[in-house]
Amino acid sequence: MTSASPVRDLGLRLLRNRSFAVGGGLIFAVLLIALTADWLAPFDPLRNAFRMRLQPPGAAHWFGTDHYGRDILSRVMYGTRISLLIGGLVVVVTGALGTVIGAVAGFYSRLDAPIMRLMDATMAFPSIVLAMIVSAVLGASVVNVVVALSIATIPHTARIVRASVLVAREHDYVEAARALGAGDLRILFRHVLINCLGPLIVRLTYVFAIAILAEATLSFVGAGPPPPAPSLGSIIAQGRDFMREAAWITIFPGLTILVCVLGLNLLGDGLRDVLDPRSRS
């Protein structure tokens, strides 16, 4: 099992993992659409065209138009960009802070109880309500939505990391590293956290998914990024009143959310499996 390049080896194993390949393919497609919206979007997502109101999907407007005559396909492409941006930022913030908080709580038993009770208190608050309050107090903007959703998703993440750290730090190899003279930081990163990667990756793909969903919810109730910039959630919110006559307004952004969340879950599962050396044949 000696291979010339560990990086190429990892790449090959990733591609061979079906769940990673399918999930990665879906996310790649969504990302591509979001990033190329400026060139590929057939219409200006903000341009009203009253004569073209509520057109069903057809040759000119693949996903139809809304009650202002705006092209849904173009709006979904731009909306995906904001949703993915928010999801990505929430994952980064939650991943960093949740890991640090959880690792400190799990590794230093003195700090465990104070930190985790604080997390429990945050968790006791319904996360959507919490996010709405933060968004209402700080004002609706992309950054504030990210802050709000991060505050809502950090406690669970910290809890999962802490639990994994508590298990991982009891292994003999941690004591062996200490016996070799390793310091806390080396032990934490090289021996403890690396063995918590599995649950963390799964949790973060889930955070990405719920961030996209929560952003949609916040936009739906008007606490999301301010209009007119479309996000997937705000498109759905605006289409709500026309569900009977023009279901396509909500169906297409809804399907996009579905594809994102499904792709991320598959990607996370695949990544977790491939990164574990024990899964090698």
């Binding site: 003999d172 190899y173 004591e175 016996a179 070799l180 690396i194 063995n195 050396p277």
Partner: peptide, 15 residues
């Protein structure tokens, strides 16, 4: 001064 452990499975970092 060093130590060798009982459990040959838990004493080596699997990653």
């Amino acid at each position: 001064m060093q130590i060798v452990f009982q459990d040959p499975y838990g004493s080596l970092n699997p990653r």
